[in-house]
Simulated assay, not measured.
Amino acid sequence: MTEKANIIVIGTGGTIAGQGKAAINTSAYLCSVLGIDEILRTIPHASALANLRAEQLLQTGSENFNNEHLLAIGRRVSRLLAQDDVDGVVITHGTDTIEETAYFLHLTLKSAKPVVVVGSMRPPSAMSSDAALNLYDAIAVAAHPSSRGIGTLVVANDEIHTARDVVKSNSVKLEAFRSPYGALGHVIEGQPRYYRRPWRAHTLDTPWSIDTLGALPKVDIVYAYGALAPDAVNAIASRARGLIYVGTGNGNVAEHLIEPLRDAARRGVHVVRASRTGNGIVLRNGAQPDDEYGWLTVEDQIPPKARILLTLALTQADDMQALQVAFERY
C-alpha cells in the first residue's frame, strides 16, 4: 500500500471561508469568517487522499493583500516545504487576487514540492457551492507525485492551471478561471490528469528566492482611457520605480501621454507597456518605438502579473535589457 502524502493546508480567508445568510446567497455573503479547520470538516473524505495538517495564517479577503502579505505567505510556505515531513502545501485564498499570489510563489519558492492555491466562487453555505470540491481537488493535486516540479498551481472548477497563465475572467461564474493556452490538466474523481507542462522558467530556475527577499520596490499600474490626463500619469509615476502602463490594443499610448511617460523613463522609472485587452502579446517596437523611448513591454503577461514580475526583477537588475529579458523568460 502506498504511503499517503503529508499535506499542509494553510487558510488565508476569502470566499472559500465565507458564509451567507441563506443557501441562495451565492454572491452576497460575509467573506473570511470560517476558519480553515471548519472548512476542512466539510470534506472528511479528503483524509483518504493525504495526511492533513491545517494552520490559519491570515483571515481576510485577497483584495486586501499587498506586498507584505505576499512575503508573509511565501516565507511561511518556504519554511514548510523545507521540512522533510511535508510533501506539499495547499493554500486557501480569495479568488480576487489568487493569480497574483500564485505567480509570486511560482517565481520565488525554491522547491519542487507541489504548492496549490485554491479558492471558490461561492461560499460553502451556498447551493451548488464549489468550495468543497475545489478544496478536495486541490488536496488531490498536491498529494499526487505527478504534480512535483511544475511550479505553483491553481485548481478551480475541475481544472489545473499553471500560476503563470491563469486569470480570473468573470466576477460570479463558477468557470471564472482560464488560461490563454489552456489548463495543464483536469481533476477527475480525485485523480489529476496532466496534458502539458509549463514552458516558462519557474521556482528552482528563477533568480529570486523568497528566503532572501527583503522589502519590495514600488511598482504601480496606470490604466489607459480616453480622458486620462498627463497629471494623473505624472502623479503615479513620481512615487514608483516601475510603472505598468495598460494601454489600448497592442499597448497603444495616446499622443498626449507619450511625453509624460518618456519623462518618467528619463527620471529612471521603468515604464512597461501592457494591454487592457486581457489577452495577446504586446509587440516590442510595434505600436511605439520602445527602444527610442526607453520603454519595456510585457510580452504576453497581464498587467497585475507584470507588476509582480517587474517588482521581483527590480530587486536584482536596473538596466532595460535585463528587465526586458525577464518578461521574455518568465
Rank of each mutant, 00 (worst) to 15 (best):
V89F: 09
V89R: 09
V89Q: 11
V89P: 11
I91L: 13
I91D: 04
I91C: 10
T92V: 12
T92H: 10
H93V: 04
H93S: 04
G94L: 04
G94A: 05
T95K: 08
T97D: 04
T97Y: 04
I98G: 02
E99Q: 09
E99A: 11
T101Q: 08
A102L: 12
Y103R: 07
F104C: 11
H106I: 03
T108D: 09
L109V: 12
K110I: 10
A112C: 06
A112R: 12
K113Q: 08
P114W: 07
V116E: 00
V117W: 06
V117K: 02
G119L: 02
M121D: 01
P124K: 03
P124E: 01
A126M: 01
M127V: 13
S128T: 09
S129A: 10
A131Y: 02
A131S: 13
A132M: 06
L133Q: 13
N134G: 05
L135E: 02
L135Q: 03
L135H: 05
Y136F: 15
Y136A: 00
D137P: 00
A138Q: 02
I139V: 08
I139R: 03
A140D: 04
A140V: 02
V141W: 05
V141F: 07
V141N: 05
A142I: 05
A142Y: 01
A143D: 07
A143Y: 06
H144R: 00
P145M: 05
S146F: 00
S147R: 06
S147E: 02
I150P: 00
G151P: 04
T152I: 05
L153W: 02
V155E: 05
N157C: 12
E159R: 15
I160Y: 00
I160G: 00
T162D: 13
R164I: 08
R164H: 13
R164L: 12
D165I: 03
V166G: 04
K168G: 11
S169H: 11
N170G: 12
S171Y: 12
V172C: 12
K173G: 14
K173A: 15
L174Y: 10
E175D: 15
A176K: 06
F177Y: 08
F177K: 03
F177C: 01
F177N: 00
R178V: 13
S179A: 15
P180L: 06
P180G: 13
P180Y: 09
Y181G: 09
G182Y: 00
G182V: 02
G182A: 04
A183R: 07
A183K: 11
G185M: 03
G185W: 00
H186S: 15
V187D: 08
I188K: 12
I188H: 10
E189A: 11
E189C: 08
G190N: 05
Q191K: 15
R193Y: 14
R196M: 14
R197P: 09
P198R: 01
W199G: 10
A201W: 14
A201N: 14
H202M: 13
H202V: 07
T203K: 05
D205H: 12
T206V: 12
W208L: 05
I210C: 07
D211I: 01
D211K: 11
T212R: 09
L216H: 07
L216M: 12
P217Y: 04
P217T: 02
K218D: 09
K218N: 10
K218E: 09
V219M: 06
V219Y: 00
D220H: 00
I221S: 06
A224V: 05
A224Q: 11
Y225C: 06
Y225V: 02
G226N: 08
A227H: 13
A232S: 14
V233R: 01
N234Y: 11
N234K: 15
A235V: 14
A237T: 07
